[in-house]
Simulated scan of single mutants.
Amino acid sequence: MGGFAEFELVEGDDGGNVLTLSGPYLVSTIGAIDQDLRALEGPISRIDLSAVSEIDTVGAWIATSLSNEHRAEITGASDRAERLIDALEGTRAEEEITAPRLPVWKRVPQAMGDKVLGARHGVYGVVGFLGALLIACASLIRHPRRFRWLALVRQLELVGVSALPIIGLMSFLIGIVIAQQGAVQLAQFGAETLTVNLVGRITLRELGVLMTAIMVAGRSGSAFAAQIGTMRLTEEVDAMQTIGISPMEALVVPRILAAVLMMPLLGFYSAGVAIIGGAVVGQFMLGIPFWTFLTRIQDVVPLYDLWVGLIKAPVFGLIVALAGCYHGMKVKGNSEEVGLRTTMAVVTGIFAVIVIDAFFAVFFTEIGWG
C-alpha cells in the first residue's frame, strides 16, 4: 500500500461521510485513481489526510478541489500538506468565467461597423494590388523576354479548355430550363414562338457570360487563391523574390491574362450551347424544327446583344482572376488561412461580377442597347 495512492469513503462518527486519503499523493502515483476520485458523489463532510505518506502540489490540488467541490473540511494534514494547500487556496475562482457580451442593440451595429471598416481596408488592398499588377504589366511590356509564355499557355488550358465540359453541360441544361419555363408562360398568351426570342436574347446578352463567370470564379478563381496561397505558406513566393523573380510577373499576370482572354470565348460557347438546349426543347415541346429554331435566332436577336456579352466577358474575367490572385497573395499564418482566403476569393468574385453586371445593364440601356 505504501507505493500506491488510495482512498476510502466511510461514514464518520458525526453522521457525515469521511474521505480518507492514504499513500503517496504525487504526480507519479495519483493518475491511477484520478478518475475514481472525480466520480465520487457526495455529500462528503471531511477529507482526512493523516494517512498520506507523501504529497506534492498535484496531490494538494486534488485535495483542495475535492474540498471545494463537496464543501468538506480537510483534517490530518502534515505541515507540508498545509503549506501547499494554503498556497492553492487563492487559485480557485468562485464566479464563472465568460466572455463579456454586449446587448443585441449594441452588438449588431458594432458588427456592421466592423464589416464596413474591413471592407474599406479590403478596397484599399485591392486598389494597391491592381496598381502593382499594372506596374508588372508595364515592366513586361518594356522587357517582353521576361514574359512566361509557357505559364500563359498552361493557364489558358486550365481556365479555358479544361472548363469546356462542365460549362457546356451547365449551359445546355440552363437553355433547356429557360426554353421549357418560357414556353409554359408564353403559352398562356398564345406566343410560344417567342420562346426563340427569349432564349436567344437572354443567353447571348446575360446568362451565357454571367453563368460562365460564376463557374470560372468557383473553378479557376478558387484554384488561383489556393495555389498562390499555398506557395505563400511554403515560402515559395519569398524564395522567388529572393532570387530576383517578381511574383506578380511569374504568378499573377499569366493567370489574369488567361482569364481575360478565355472569358469571351467561354461566354460565347456557353451562349451557343444554351441556344442548342433551347432548340432541343423547341423540337420536342413546341414543334419548332431544330434547324428552324437556330435560323430564327439570327433574325430575332440583334447583333448588339452579342457585343454586349462579348464586352462584359473580359471584364468579368479580370474581376474573377483579380479576386483569386489577390486573396492568394494575402495568405499568411497557417493552412486554415488558405481555405478561408479561397472561400473569400469565390464569394467576392461572384459578388463583384453581379454588381458590375448590374452597372452594365444600366449603361447599355442608356446608350440604346437595351
Rank of each mutant, 00 (worst) to 15 (best):
I356H: 04
S270R: 07
A136T: 11
V315Q: 02
I311V: 15
V58R: 15
S53P: 01
G15P: 01
D56W: 10
S246E: 08
D36H: 05
G218M: 04
L37A: 07
V252K: 00
I297D: 06
I350P: 02
R80E: 15
K106Q: 14
G3V: 10
D238E: 15
V346R: 02
W149A: 09
L9A: 02
R120N: 14
G175C: 06
V209C: 05
D48N: 14
G200L: 03
M240T: 10
T29N: 12
K106F: 11
R71L: 13
V237D: 12
L340T: 11
E82L: 12
R296M: 11
R146S: 14
E11M: 07
Q227F: 01
V353M: 02
F359H: 05
V301Y: 06
F284A: 07
V300I: 08
A77P: 06
A358Y: 07
A187P: 03
T193G: 10
R146F: 10
L158D: 08
T230L: 05
Q35K: 09
N68T: 09
A163C: 12
L261F: 11
K106G: 02
I311Y: 00
A259K: 00
V301F: 09
K312E: 00
S50A: 13
E6W: 04
S22M: 10
V27T: 08
Y124T: 13
V253A: 05
S50I: 09
R205T: 03
T64L: 14
T193N: 14
V252Q: 09
F363V: 01
P165I: 09
A60I: 04
V301R: 06
L102P: 10
A39M: 12
W369R: 04
P103C: 03
I367N: 00
V104A: 14
D34H: 05
G131I: 04
M344N: 10
A225N: 01
A274P: 06
V209P: 01
W291F: 12
A213R: 01
V300F: 04
E54C: 08
A217K: 02
S50F: 05
F4Y: 03
A179W: 09
A81N: 12
A213W: 03
I311C: 04
S222W: 03
A323F: 02
P302Y: 00
T203M: 15
V161P: 08
G368D: 02
F363R: 00
T212F: 00
T242D: 06
T295R: 15
T230C: 10
K312P: 00
D13F: 08
E54S: 12
Y304V: 13
V281H: 06
G208H: 11
I174R: 00
G31L: 02
R296Q: 14
V108N: 02
L204S: 11
C325Q: 06
R92F: 13
A119V: 12
A239D: 08
G218N: 05
Y25A: 00
Q180N: 14
P43V: 02
T193A: 14
H327T: 07
